[in-house]
Nucleic acid binder design. Sequence first.
DNA 1: AATATTTATTGAACGATGTTCAAGGTCTCT
DNA 2: AGAGACCTTGAACATCGTTCAATAAATATT
Lengths: 208, 208
Amino acid sequence: MTKALERREKLRVDLIQAAEQMIAERGLAGLKTRDLAREIGCANGAVYNLVTDVDELILRVGSRTLLRLDEALSAAESASDPSPQETLIRIALAYCDFAAENLQLWRALFEHRMEADKILPDWSVNDQMQLFRHIYQPLAVLFPKRSQEELGITARSLFSAVHGMVALGLEQKLVAVPLPALRKEIATLVRAMIDGLAARGVKRISGA
Amino acid sequence: MTKALERREKLRVDLIQAAEQMIAERGLAGLKTRDLAREIGCANGAVYNLVTDVDELILRVGSRTLLRLDEALSAAESASDPSPQETLIRIALAYCDFAAENLQLWRALFEHRMEADKILPDWSVNDQMQLFRHIYQPLAVLFPKRSQEELGITARSLFSAVHGMVALGLEQKLVAVPLPALRKEIATLVRAMIDGLAARGVKRISGA
DNA sequence: AATATTTATTGAACGATGTTCAAGGTCTCT
DNA sequence: AGAGACCTTGAACATCGTTCAATAAATATT
């Protein structure tokens, strides 16, 4: 009873890895079931024994990408300099670097859109983009007076802002920016946002 | 000699309008040449007399969307309160509102990706995302000491940051945020960025 | 060990889609 | 009115994701 399932499982991970590599090399639009089947050595139709959809396949690859991204941000979170300002900048740059080094896979996270009616499988709801939790800690240290909810909102805003700089920065559409320049811009703006948030918190008390 | 061309032109604008409406209603993925042909009353193949590609069609719709977006930002640029801070916030909120009200068309601007080899037609290079020029003026007033190039970089960074907040804020992927909450977050963060950039400019002179 | 039953795999076929093209129709100019 | 240029048509092609009846394999039963 094991023999069949073993083979199935091995094929399934082969499939997901092949899909990951194919997206990395040719983009989300370059993912083709027939090519995948040839790659892992099975018939075209057999793909649908391992996975119900290409949607599921893309989500599974997305899970892996999110996991690696999470690790990259975690590494940046706990590094030498514990100053919360510097930590936040390190995390932002780590996000930028990950996106640049995994461009197609990172894009796939945001490009993919399910048909409105289909609901996400439950194994996929867990890893649903909680990336901004990485910047919660340093923010909490910086702004000890703020509530959990306020901090959560600020964290999401900060993360989204950095995401936007990376997204448009790595795109052709808005003038190609060399990576080192982009990194510098990100560091500058993150610093500014932190300073600005701090100042605003103080000013509001003394009235302005 | 006019009769034929007139009809052609009328059909062409019909086609582009139909495409615009179809994207607005069903998203970029819902754009189908056969449906378009039926909509404007011609054969499927005739679409390719009016337009070389669906790529071109999408770009033409994108041009229109960019134009309307530009107008919306211009309106926000020149409004009652001339204070540059408030102007920048108004522009950011106008961007957010436009995206929310034209969700599918706005998404199409960023979702669409040409195959790597195909080059953009020249009529499309002009309106290539120069949206951040809208925030150049108020920034120049706020930071008169900075060079044109520095201001350009800052403008792009600020715009990208707001774009990120809107992009992730209107997405399902990162927790659905109610629009009023998103607008408040944007206003807060834009203010913070401005304050932070100003403070940083001062601090650097006095050393820190 | 032999057979029956359940399960997995195959690859041909289906439907949808963007795109092309030869055939036939329409328009324009002389 | 007729010749030549242009347009339009809809059938056909290639490429997808996806399905399914037939076949093969694995497992369960006797």
